[in-house]
Design a protein around this nucleic acid. Structure first.
Lengths: 226, 226
DNA sequence: GAGCATAGGCATACACCGTAAGCCTGTCAA
DNA sequence: TTGACAGGCTTACGGTGTATGCCTATGCTC
């Protein structure tokens, strides 16, 4: 006898498939197979696929582990940002999910991390208005950087067919050999020069670098404002 | 007699459909209909749908208008960032496209804006390594903020059904009426307090706020490093 | 001009998708 | 015992990407 079908089991299965096989692999039939059932049976527990994906989003948000807040706000903010990045990297496809289904979070639990972030920012001593600016700036930064990090979007490579330039091949090999000659250096000199550094750029250092810039700027503003 | 079918006409049609009707609307049959042809005819000009979407990405990148570089680097950087934001806002669905098809740009023309950005950063006087960090930070920031801007992802709303919270309704109305009571204020006090500011936040001001933080920090680093 | 290669259209077919509609069965209350 | 109903299943429809093959108009060679 099988375990009873529940919304939670279904959403869990969908999330698992999304993490393991990508967003496109999440179909009603595939999820149903995962929980040992026919596709149409899922509709007793989720309204439609939209609803299922809403559940996936919420489940990802619930993965957020709240840092200890009994410290200076800037340390809490830094750890919160790192934790958000961890969540996004653990479920990178959720970014695409948000991007294509441009609709707000609606489940209460999914809003708790947002509440947390606003609470921390409030402690920095700036007014509500500026707090929202800060929230959006930090949130946007994390999302964008993680997106560039997990996607290969602007990674580096060698020329192919004379017309296009496949930058991804360079990542496969180690960077400090002579790859530059394969790129049209006369048209892309700076890109060619930056290639090795693009390839060996440490994502953690990258993330902290930008986070430091933002937090330092925010702290300076908070101090002068108060 | 119809105009001859070309790859460019096809890609243009796909981009037009994506901008007007969303990413999901871009199907081979829909694009074919747009150019007055059957779906299979497209395959004489694009390898497959992936290839077509690659073309769309490249065409978006080609929309980038290069700012005059005969000015202090920080002004060029600021205008370049604004221009990149403009491009993304003009074709917001391209963000979802990048997010889900995590693969690098390969067409030469699509890499020119990247070359431009690296060139400007180099002029700031920092070394290649740090230049790449700066490139990724600014690029990620722009992408993330625009993504939050065009998607409603973390927008604001009223409670629905007691269990979930629909934040989008607030955006429809003007914010400074008593919406807070509809939210579970005891669980989300900071969010409730921030609601009006979230709703009336000016995207332009928002963008410039974060950009100023980043550029000021980068300028400070560049000065001390040189 | 004749013959023919090729480019670039089209029609058909297959496997997959989300989901509307209806059916079947096991559980439980009256 | 009867009936309601929750929660499975089956079938079917119109959509998707694309492999395969066919048809025809253009243009090149002799």
């Amino acid at each position: 006898m099988k375990a009873r079908l529940t919304r939670e089991r279904i959403v869990e299965a969908a999330l698992h498939i999304m993490d393991a096989e990508g967003l496109d692999a999440v179909s009603m039939r595939r999820v149903a197979r995962e929980v040992g059932v026919e596709a149409m049976s899922l509709y007793h527990h989720v309204r439609d696929k939209e609803d299922l994906l809403d559940g996936v989003c919420a489940m990802v948000m619930c993965d957020f582990r709240y840092p200890d807040e009994d410290r200076p706000w800037i340390e809490v903010a830094r750890d919160g940002a790192r934790e958000w990045r961890r969540v996004l990297r653990d479920h990178p496809n959720v970014i695409a999910l948000w991007a294509e289904r441009q609709r707000p979070m609606t489940e209460l639990e999914a809003l708790m991390p947002m509440e947390f972030a606003l609470r921390v920012i409030t402690r920095a001593g700036m007014d509500q208005r500026e707090g929202v600016l800060v929230f959006n700036v930090i949130g946007g930064y994390i999302m964008g950087v993680v997106m560039m990090e997990v996607g290969a979007m602007f990674s580096a490579g060698t020329a192919r067919g004379g017309k296009t330039v496949d930058l991804s091949a360079v990542h496969a090999k180690l960077p400090d050999e002579g790859f530059a000659p394969f790129l049209p250096a006369e048209q892309l000199p700076c890109l060619v020069a930056a290639l090795p550094h693009l390839a060996e750029c440490d994502p953690d250092e990258q993330f902290e670098f930008g986070l430091d810039l933002l937090l330092a700027g925010i702290e300076a503003r908070a101090l002068t404002a108060s």
